[in-house]
Structure formats: structure tokens, C-alpha cells
Design a protein around this nucleic acid. Structure first.
Length: 552
RNA sequence: GCCCCCGUAGCUCAGGGGAUAGAGCACCGCCCUCCGGAGGCGGGGGCGUAGGUUCGAAUCCUACCGGGGGCACCA
């Protein structure tokens, strides 16, 4: 029995009590069972009676008693107990609980998925780092989290477009190309330019590609450096993201919005809607009408479009390409941007926080010996995606960046990058998966086969009940991670599951102790449970973009 | 001044109102003649402060304290 099935059964029990006049309450829309923290409080618990007591005009324990009697009749429920102020603690019979192992194995990769996002197309824009250098830690965090979130929404049945906004239009590109030119000439980097070995590296590669580029007049040379250098940088970013397991469906160039008239179109649309106005020689969007602090310039008084103009066009473009919902993931240093983006959304006639969501992630700090380290090119403490990848590998890097909430600033310890340590919880989870693989392999050698027997009533060990209950939680974790946009919940869940598995493994053998011992249904049934665990670990790790190794 | 995020164990962090607040790491002590000890068992220690809402608050609200990040005709 899955927790969903149990919840449904409880709902029926409640409806029955209402129907028979035992209780006079509204049946709540959200009715669910929870895993009690304490052992001894049953397999599942609900505080339903406590919630209903007031409306029913009865003491909570009386409500609980009425419900307990009815829930106790549900097939598969071994016992119901009224506890404390009115909790209902429910124990399933082993057979009913154990059936879940077979359900999971049969569902395979589909276990935990659902259709709640079916028919909805979400455009997820993340990373979007400027092509003026490698991806820093902040962008790396978004790469991991954004890709996971995309996977999770897909697991909820949604269609996702992963999108990278490639900012190749404005002043920072000029600074980058001037920096390349300066580096090529052996001059120091411009005041407001970019420094670092990678600039010199790109400059050299541009010169290799285009011999004689330095013979050109500065202006033309700079333009060549821009065109070639930006493309090279872009390819590098793409390649390192790929190595990180993140591939975008669309790399969108800001330049195109300006070149193909998309900006003009967006402005025309907003003008039609009466949202634009002129002041001081500039063209403005009246974002203050929709909650923004102030109005925002779209075309500057010098005739140049502002950065914001690209956002207008880009949003419209995404919607016209079929996105029902647009996610934009930004660093905390951009939180001040939310107001104008939401106002823009509304100005287009869309629903803010429905058609558009801005997800803010806090910063990543570099730490050494518990002390913050400023990222400094001179000190060699700039850490980029490749550094993290080289140091700990894709799995550990992605896991570490995904396992905590994006609401918290994150510290990355510099020592981790040099120590190659096994402290990462990812190994705990991966090891559990490797163990399940090992057990399955050895069981097969011993002639233990799932197909020969399955008797879930044999799964009576407390560690088996705990493992089963945790396995049953997985679908809700996937659903909740999606609705809250919080991939870290999957990671935390996997750590819990891995722990339950390790404890079970320590207590319950899947294979006979020796070759002389007979293979029984207990062994076979436990193999089902082992394989179910393996499946869920693999499914969950997949959502994080982390591999599920058979050996470590 | 205004806005956003955070403050939970020595450290890094989970805990979207529920029972005795958890995990990893670190520290101490144990556990395979038995599926991989990258494991398991036990121990010490914690919700920034003060109010409020609630049968019940780490969780919701308010104020304050502390830390981080923002408040451009820059991108």
C-alpha cells in the first residue's frame, strides 16, 4: 500500500463518518499521512483529528477514536492507535507494506514520476553567464540546480526547454574585446577590462586563427577580436557545461533580439497596450504601475536600447515560442530585478508569478580554513566550473551544489578542491546504490531469483518497514521538489534512503549465508526490496544529474 | 533609508504548524569465522533575542540584534 492509497482510504473513512452523522465537518482538500519521527508511532501518522476537532466541536481524541475505528477496517491496515492529543498512528500489515517493493520494481524508471505538469511547457533559463570569461562558482551552482529542477519538472510530466541567454550585445563585450586586443599586444589590461590567463589564451588563439590581425587598424582589429574571441569563449562555456552534464536546448543570443527587430516588436506591443511613455528624451515602460519601485528606461535618450529592452523582447519571444511558464534563475545580486520583470510580465497582460517566475539563488563564497577568501585573479583564488570539475569530478560537484537550499549562501572550501576528500555525502548515497548492485549480482550467482517467489508478509523486520516507508515517500518528494522549485529535497531524501538501506543491509541478508543453505522465499522477497531500493536510488540520482555506479 | 536571503550540534547544512528537532563531517567507545567497513551501533553537545497567533511554533506574524546581497538612461 502506498501512502497515497492510505490517504485515500482515510478520506473514505472520514467521508463515511460524516455521511453516517458521526462527525459534522468539511472534508479537507489536503489530506495526507506522514512518516512519524519516532519509531513506535506506527508506519504512518496523521494529525487529521487535531485539525478537525475545532470544526467538529468535539475533543480531538474523540474525533480520533471515531476515525480509528473506521480506518482499522481498511484492508492492509494492521492497527490504528490514538496517541497523545489525538494523533492517529497507523500500522500496516507487512504484506500490504511490502507489496510496494513489487510496485516499484515493476514501475522501474517511472516510479516517482507523475503527470501534474502534463501539457505544460516551462522555459527554464539559467546560468546565462557573459561570454567574457569562464563560469564562476555562482553560475556553476545554477548550472547544477537549474538542470536538476528541469529534470524534476520533466519527472512531473512537464515539457522543459533549457535555455541559456547569451549576453553578446552590450558594453561588457566591448571591454572584453579591448582586453583581448591589449593582451595580444602585450599591453596591460584596460582599467575596466578583463584580466586573467584565459584572456591571454584566447587572444593568442585568435591570433593563431587570424594571422596578421594586429596589422589591422585598432578599431578593425578589436572587432575581429570581438567576433572570434566571443565565439571561442562561448564554445568553451558550452563545452565545460557539457562536461558538467548540462546541455541546453537553446542558446539564445541577445544580439539577435536587436538584429531581427524583436525589441521593436516588443516595444510596439507595449505601446499598443498603452504602457510606454516618453520623458527626458528617453522611452520608458511604466513598470511603477505594476508594483515596481520606479519606471524603467527602454530606449535611452542617446537612442541606444537599454539592457531591459532585451528582456522585454526575450520574454515575449519565449512566450511566443510556446512557453506557458517562464523561469528565470538569477543570483542574489539581481534580486532588485524582480520588480521590473514582474511588472513587465503584467504589462504584457500576463500573470506575474504564474507565467513568469524569478528564482533567486544566494551567493557562493570561497572559504579556506573556515575563513572567507576573496576571489582574486592575482591571488589565484578564482574558482570556475572547470576547477571544481577537475578537483572533485562531476558527481561530487553537482551533488554538493544541489544538496542545500538556494536560499542559503553556500561556502565552498578551497581545501576540498585540493584534498580530493570523501567527505561528500554523495558517496554515501552512491555507495548504497553500489551495494544494491553488488547484492543483486551475488544473489543471482546464488540462484536467488525474483521471479521464483514474492511473499511480502515475510518482510517483518523493523528495518524493512522503515525502508519500505521511505521508498513510499519518494513520489511525494519528487512532486514537492517541483512545486517548491527545490531540488535539494531530492538529495536530502536520498541520504535518508541510503541510511535506511545501509541499516537494513546490516540486519537482513538477501542471500543465504552459505551455499549449502536453501534459498527461500524470504531471500527472494528481500531481493525484490533490494532491487526496489536500487531503482529509487537510481531514479533520484538521475534527477540530480549524478551517476548511480554499480561499483565504486 | 527601503528591498531580498540567512541565523538550528564544534563545522557544513536538512527540517514548507504536530509527538522526545535530524544527517554528514569532526571527537570518544564498540561491531564481521556472515552479501564490499566508502558500512552499522552507542555517546557528548543546538533552534540569535523578545513579544504575538495557535490545542500545538525551528516553521506563521511583529520588533530588535547579527551576517550576506541589492536599490542606474551599467550590463
Amino acid at each position: 500500500m502506498t501512502p497515497e492509497e492510505l490517504s485515500t482510504a482515510i478520506r473514505s473513512a472520514l467521508q463515511g463518518a460524516v455521511h453516517d452523522g458521526q462527525l459534522q465537518v468539511d472534508v479537507p482538500a489536503d489530506l495526507r499521512v506522514e512518516r512519524p519521527r519516532q519509531r513506535g508511532h506506527g508506519d504512518w501518522a496523521t494529525s487529521l483529528a487535531l485539525q478537525l476537532a475545532k470544526g467538529a466541536g468535539m475533543p480531538p481524541r474523540d474525533v480520533a477514536t471515531i476515525l480509528a475505528e473506521r480506518i482499522g477496517q481498511v484492508p492492509g491496515v494492521a492497527g490504528v492507535e490514538v496517541a497523545g492529543p489525538g494523533f492517529l498512528n497507523i500500522t500496516l500489515d507487512a504484506a500490504s507494506a511490502g507489496e510496494l517493493a513489487r510496485t516499484i520494481v515493476r514501475a522501474g524508471p517511472a516510479y516517482g514520476t507523475n503527470g501534474s505538469e502534463h501539457g505544460r511547457c516551462t522555459n527554464v533559463e539559467f546560468v546565462s553567464a557573459n561570454p567574457t570569461g569562464p563560469i564562476h562558482l555562482g553560475g556553476t551552482r545554477w548550472a547544477a540546480v537549474g538542470d536538476s529542477l528541469a529534470r524534476i519538472i520533466e519527472a512531473n510530466g512537464g515539457t522543459v526547454t533549457r535555455e541559456y541567454y547569451f549576453n553578446d550585445h552590450g558594453a561588457q563585450i566591448d571591454r572584453f574585446s579591448r582586453s583581448l586586443l591589449a593582451a595580444a599586444k602585450g599591453d596591460p589590461a584596460p582599467e575596466d577590462g578583463y584580466a586573467g590567463d584565459y584572456v591571454l589564451d584566447i587572444a593568442h588563439r585568435v591570433m593563431d586563427r587570424e594571422a596578421g590581425i594586429l596589422e589591422l587598424p585598432d578599431e578593425q582589429a578589436q572587432e575581429r577580436f570581438r567576433a572570434i574571441g566571443v565565439t571561442m569563449m562561448f564554445e568553451e562555456i558550452k563545452a565545460s557545461l557539457h562536461d558538467f552534464g548540462v546541455d541546453f536546448d537553446v542558446y539564445f543570443h541577445e544580439n539577435d533580439l536587436h538584429a531581427d527587430g524583436a525589441v521593436d516588436k516588443a516595444i510596439a506591443r507595449l505601446t499598443e497596450r498603452g504602457e510606454m511613455f516618453e520623458r527626458d528624451g528617453a522611452l520608458w515602460l511604466r513598470t511603477s504601475a505594476y508594483g515596481d519601485d520606479k519606471d524603467r528606461v527602454v530606449i535611452r535618450s542617446n537612442g541606444e536600447p537599454s539592457y531591459f529592452s532585451g528582456d522585454l523582447a526575450y520574454y515575449l519571444n519565449k512566450r511566443e515560442r510556446g512557453a506557458d511558464r517562464v523561469f528565470i534563475m538569477l543570483g542574489a545580486d539581481h534580486h532588485g530585478y524582480i520588480g521590473r520583470l514582474m511588472a513587465m510580465c503584467q504589462a504584457f497582460g500576463d500573470a506575474p508569478h504564474e507565467n513568469l517566475e524569478v528564482l533567486i539563488g544566494q551567493m557562493v563564497n570561497l572559504v579556506k580554513d573556515g575563513k572567507p577568501v576573496r576571489m582574486s585573479k592575482r591571488a589565484g583564488t578564482v574558482v570556475v566550473l572547470e576547477d571544481l570539475l577537475d578537483a572533485v569530478g562531476k558527481d561530487a560537484a553537482r551533488y554538493a551544489l544541489t544538496r542545500s537550499s538556494t536560499d542559503s549562501t553556500m561556502d565552498i572550501d578551497l581545501d576540498l578542491l585540493t584534498r580530493h576528500s570523501n567527505e561528500n555525502p554523495v558517496y554515501y548515497v552512491q555507495y548504497a546504490h553500489a551495494r544494491t548492485s553488488n547484492v543483486a549480482r551475488l544473489a543471482a550467482e546464488d540462484g536467488v531469483a525474483r521471479s521464483d517467489g514474492f511473499d511480502p508478509s515475510l518482510l517483518v523486520d523493523p528495518t524493512e518497514a522503515a525502508l519500505l516507508a521511505t521508498l513510499g515517500d519518494y513520489p511525494r518528494v519528487v512532486a514537492q521538489s517541483a512545486t517548491l522549485r527545490e531540488p535539494h529535497r531530492v538529495a536530502r531524501y536520498l541520504e535518508d534512503l541510503a541510511g535506511r538501506f545501509h541499516k537494513w543491509y546490516d540486519t537482513c541478508r538477501v542471500r543465504p549465508l552459505t551455499v549449502e543453505d536453501e534459498v527461500t522465499d524470504l531471500h527472494r522477497t528481500r531481493l525484490w526490496l533490494n532491487d526496489a531500493t536500487r531503482q529509487v536510488l537510481a531514479n533520484g540520482l538521475g534527477l540530480l544529474g549524478v551517476s548511480a555506479p554499480d561499483r565504486m
